[in-house]
């Protein structure tokens, strides 16, 4: 006999349960969790290296590094004297909440204010996977071109903060800043925007200070 089952179960349901577990852990330990996303080569790790140097003097921070393979990024972050956990997805194009939960087990949560998660370099897939984060940051670099906003709208729609990296290269490209700002307004009018050059250290203090103040406000409201 044929049986029909009305299911209505989301393919992301188990990820969302895991993300909820992460939220509990963060609340219990008064930790602010940030999910940083971009395409490969936009400069996430360099941004972290430069920003951590400043952040670590103000708040207690750890990093979770997502990569398909190798521990190179975690090694770069550890060299800054920061506790870094490397996650290797072995081919998967995004981090999911289960992986981040596992990384949490390797951190002393009671000793932290902020955890920065560097997602896999990809502007499509990571957008769909909630990691239990308090803030989504998307990074775009000048050399990728301003059209990436309209080509990958979901990523930019779901973020709360936008960092435009490699801003020092603007004069050498045909990147259209006015068009980018117009597109950003229509895709996500509430996005907070910062211009940086991670390599040269430009704008690093400004965005880091903003992050510190967001973390502190959050900790005050939670405690």
């Amino acid at each position: 006999m044929t049986i029909r089952v009305e299911l209505g179960t989301s393919l992301l349901a188990r990820n969302e349960e895991m993300a909820a577990e992460i939220r509990y852990l963060c609340q219990d330990n008064n930790i602010f969790l940030v999910n940083i996303m971009s395409s490969p080569g936009a400069g996430k790790t360099t941004l972290l290296e430069k920003s951590l140097n400043f952040l670590k003097t103000h708040i207690k921070v750890a990093v979770i590094e997502g990569d398909i393979a190798t521990t190179r990024d975690a090694d770069r972050i550890s060299a800054q004297g920061i506790n870094a956990v490397q996650l290797n997805t072995n081919g998967a194009c995004h981090l999911d909440a289960r992986m981040v939960y596992q990384a949490f087990q390797k951190l002393d949560l009671s000793a932290l204010d902020l955890i920065l998660v560097e997602n896999i370099g990809n502007l499509v897939c990571p957008a769909e996977f909630d990691l239990g984060e308090n803030l989504r940051i998307v990074l775009l670099s000048i050399t990728e071109g301003n059209d990436k906003i309209v080509k990958y709208p979901v990523m930019f729609r779901d973020a709360q903060m936008f960092l435009l990296n490699k801003i020092d290269l603007l004069p050498y490209t045909d990147f259209n800043l006015a068009e980018l700002e117009k597109d950003l307004r229509t895709i996500n009018s509430e996005l907070e925007v910062f211009h940086v050059s991670a390599r040269l250290g430009l704008g690093i203090e400004a965005w880091s200070n903003r992050l510190i103040s967001i973390v502190r406000n959050h900790r005050r409201s939670e405690s």
Partner: peptide, 16 residues
């Protein structure tokens, strides 16, 4: 967004 983010198994059928 009120629609467009759905991703779920609505139903399935099988032999007992």
């Amino acid at each position: 967004i009120i629609s467009g983010r759905e991703l779920y198994i609505a139903s399935f059928e099988g032999e007992e």
